[in-house]
Amino acid sequence: MSTRDWLLDDSPATLTQANLGRAWRMFSALMRNPLAVAGLLIILLLLATALFAPWIAPESPVGQNLQRRLLPPSAEHWMGTDELGRDIFSRVVYGSRITLMIVALVAVISAPLGLIIGAVAGYFGGWVDRILMGLTDVFLSLPKLILALAFVAALGPGIENAIIAIAITAWPAYARIARAETLTFRNAEYIQAVRLVGGSHGRIIFRHVLPLCTSSMIVRVTLDMAGIILTAAGLGFLGLGAQPPLPEWGAMISRGRTFILDQWWVATMPGFAIILVSLGFCFLGDGLRDVLDPKQGGEK
């Protein structure tokens, strides 16, 4: 019996086999979607670039050399040099670490927050639900970028505060999804069964409700990543996110703004990195939605 047959066995012998089989089926469905594969490759590229930045980048991201400032792209400097003579390609490579850190932290803060708020609201219902969802709706009906700007203004510029501000604006969508999912199985028989054997509310929510929300949550978070990257870059562009000399892509575009008419590469090159990574998350999110959440994929 080959590994593949073992994975696709119709009557798995153990829980592990069933789980692995399920994961394998999803993975192969995802691999049949060319756009999703492209997205996955782009994100793997981002991960590899961030991980191996010191070996990929030919130069230091902060080392200045005023003798070769604003050189156009060439074989030596693939993306040219900026106004302090730094190699833009090296800065873009190191910038992938910052972008990855921002999206990872925003996801780690806002997804669990939204999940718990939504699950609690949906599970308990009544006044808890009304208050929590009222709060969620207020946040949802406000423009995200403006809200993030206002929060950063209050907290002060800097990459940590930018991450907090973006996370504050990102959770409501997840709360809505978690609540909707929770409502569908709140009164299911297996939940009643857990209650009968004496499971506490906390146990039911964390062990039996939340795990079922994860697949739609993964889809939504992946689709939101592009927006998060754009907001973070926007904050960086306005000087409210990552501060110099950090090689954050949005902040790099902002530096190049002054030279856009004569030295176009300074502002243009980091933009391509932003577009590539955002597109990668969009492609992967679209593909994941088709695999994990077929009912929402009505657009195809």
């Binding site: 754009l230 870059a233 926007g234 562009f237 856009i260 502002a267 932003i274 955002s278 597109l279």
Partner: peptide, 14 residues
């Protein structure tokens, strides 16, 4: 999809 992935400020500069 480009509409979701291109930063507005970058497109403005370009």
């Amino acid at each position: 999809l480009l509409g979701y992935s291109v930063p507005a400020f970058w497109l403005g500069l370009v």
